[in-house]
């Protein structure tokens, strides 16, 4: 890549040039893959990103790892004029343990989530799900913010984050707001984010002592596969009673789904086998999976049932 200013005249006119190093992927443009791209913008501070978005949001796309975005650009589904990279934002590449919660910066790559000692104890469900994402190379590039921002119904970080009662902090030049994960998605590739906003971080409240849970992902092969469906379950026990429960699912609806009715079947109860089966049945009734190349609706429904039942309730039964 070479420094490349020629095509960015318009940026200069708009007064951006002082803020940013502007790079071009002239080779790529030549080859015709990136048709409308004028510049690749690589800021080093969050303020610069937000400033840029404030002024040029409608013609820009933010990019973190690019593992989703680049495919969409290549297929012509997204035609950015400016790609604004978040890769230079050190401040968003940290995992912080604070009193009562953990903050994961949006530009944290999944490998860091997998390796994090703090998450090992407090959010192992997220770690488990991260390990099952894609394949090892991807873990070093793909970010949690990108996974959420891409808003795929199959995003593997979403079900565990639902179960962990995580919230998403978004930020724009005008300030911040906080949104529960399950309310963040509006549809396929649609979120509550406004054009000038980005995800800043994911905030996970620390679960209590008797928290248990798990994540199961079903796909046709063992790596490098989009989920046919996925299910995460998290239970807060108190004296053998389900004090609180959360169930999150991937690819059973246009958005990652929290199945509230199924949760209610078990909430406040002792998880007897019959109740777990009922919970699984209700969960299936709350979903609306599609038929596609990966599986039929019927199979997905059956699997919602199987996976909800299979999920870590079992450990609890085994433990007595």
């Amino acid at each position: 890549m070479s420094l490349f200013f020629q095509k960015s005249e318009s940026l200069k006119e708009q007064g951006f040039i002082d803020f940013f190093i502007i790079l071009s992927i002239s080779e790529v443009i030549d080859q015709g893959s990136v048709l409308d791209l004028q510049a690749f913008i690589h800021p080093f501070s969050l303020d610069d990103v937000l400033e840029f978005l404030e002024r040029g949001a409608s013609i820009s796309n933010v990019m973190a790892g690019g593992t989703d975005l680049f495919l969409q650009v290549k297929q012509g589904l997204v035609k950015p004029k400016y790609l604004v990279s978040l890769a230079g934002l050190k401040e968003l590449k940290k995992i912080d343990l604070e009193v009562g919660f953990i903050k994961i910066g949006s530009v944290v790559a999944f490998q860091e989530i997998i390796d994090s000692e703090d998450l090992k104890y407090k959010a192992y469900i997220l770690q488990g799900a991260s390990r099952k994402m894609g394949f090892p190379q991807l873990h070093h590039v793909a970010t949690i913010g990108g996974n959420l921002g891409n808003a795929s119904p199959a995003a593997d970080s979403a079900p565990p984050l639902i179960v962990l009662r995580a919230k998403i902090r978004v930020v724009s030049k005008n300030g911040e707001r906080v949104i529960p994960v399950e309310s963040f998605f509006l549809g396929i590739k649609k979120t509550v984010l406004k054009a000038n906003e980005i995800i800043k971080e994911v905030v996970i409240p620390l679960p209590g002592e008797n928290f248990t849970g798990g994540f199961v992902k079903l796909g046709k092969r063992n790596a490098h596969v989009l989920s046919t469906i996925s299910v995460a379950v998290g239970i807060q026990f108190s004296d053998g009673i389900v004090k609180d429960i959360r169930i999150g699912m991937g690819f059973v609806a246009p958005i990652p789904l929290r199945t509230l009715k199924a949760e209610n079947v078990l909430r406040g109860k002792k998880p007897a086998e019959g109740l777990v089966i009922k919970c699984a049945k209700v969960a299936a009734s709350e979903t609306a999976p599609i038929s596609d190349q990966r599986a039929s609706t019927g199979y997905r429904w059956e699997m919602v049932f199987v996976l909800t039942r299979m999920n870590d309730f079992k450990d609890h039964f085994q433990g007595g």
Binding site: F135, K220, R221, N222, A223, H224, V225, L226, Q293, R294
Partner: peptide
């Protein structure tokens, strides 16, 4: 052909 891509035409990986 409904899946002319390597996202949905799956071949085994080293993990398989």
């Amino acid at each position: 052909i409904l899946n002319p891509n390597l996202t949905d035409y799956l071949i085994p990986t080293s993990m398989d």
